[in-house]
């Protein structure tokens, strides 16, 4: 197991579109192990995508099950060749990225999504998710398409009137 080097913008590899994974072999399994170890080494990272370690494959990991303030989640998700097949709603949230140190900003994402992806056994899984987990998945899939959250920043003044926690 190895902690891989996280590449940082302006590295061009972060802006490239990744290729479909076709070979589900031992090399892929080993890479996934290293990628997860790299995620765990990043401070509080809930996700990581292959391009963040310079590998242009459509593969990402998301796990939002360990947050201090718990959110709905599906546990550890290894997503190979993931696709979002349905989007619903919009929500503004604050994001940061291992590949863009020392900056966080507001991004609008779909509130609910339907996602399908393959596992290490090449079998497809599909489910709906929402909120924080959906945000993390969208952030990671953007990496596979050569997009960073910086490409989706909204002005400080852009405010969606969010779900109401308190209304006088």
């Amino acid at each position: 197991m190895t902690v891989l080097e996280i590449i940082h913008y302006p590295d061009d590899r972060l802006k490239q579109e990744s290729q479909e994974v076709e070979l589900f072999d031992q090399e892929l399994k080993d890479f996934v192990t290293d990628l997860e170890e790299t995620r765990m080494a990043g401070p509080g990272a809930v996700g990581i995508a292959a391009p963040q370690v310079g590998c242009a494959k459509r593969l990402a990991i998301v796990d939002v099950s360990g947050l201090k303030k718990p959110v709905d989640n599906h546990g550890y998700l290894l997503m190979i060749n993931p696709e979002i097949t349905k989007w619903e709603g919009m929500e503004k949230g604050r994001e940061g990225c291992l590949s863009v140190p020392d900056f966080t900003g507001n991004v609008i994402r779909a509130e609910k999504i339907k996602i399908r992806f393959q596992g290490l056994d090449a079998q497809w899984t599909e489910f709906e998710t929402h909120g924080y987990e959906a945000r993390a998945i969208q952030h990671e899939i953007d990496h596979l398409d050569g997009m960073l959250f910086l490409d989706r920043l909204v002005s400080r003044r852009t405010d969606l009137f969010q779900r109401k926690i308190y209304k006088k």
Binding site: G44, V46, V62, K69, E95, L98, R135, H139, K168
Partner: peptide, 23 residues
């Protein structure tokens, strides 16, 4: 949120936690 309930002004107020995503 508790303190906001004491505000007398006729204002609408939304207080939403920010849970920054790092990925």
């Amino acid at each position: 949120t508790d303190a906001a309930k004491t505000i007398s002004a006729a204002v609408e107020m939304n207080i939403v936690p920010i849970q920054t995503l790092r990925a």
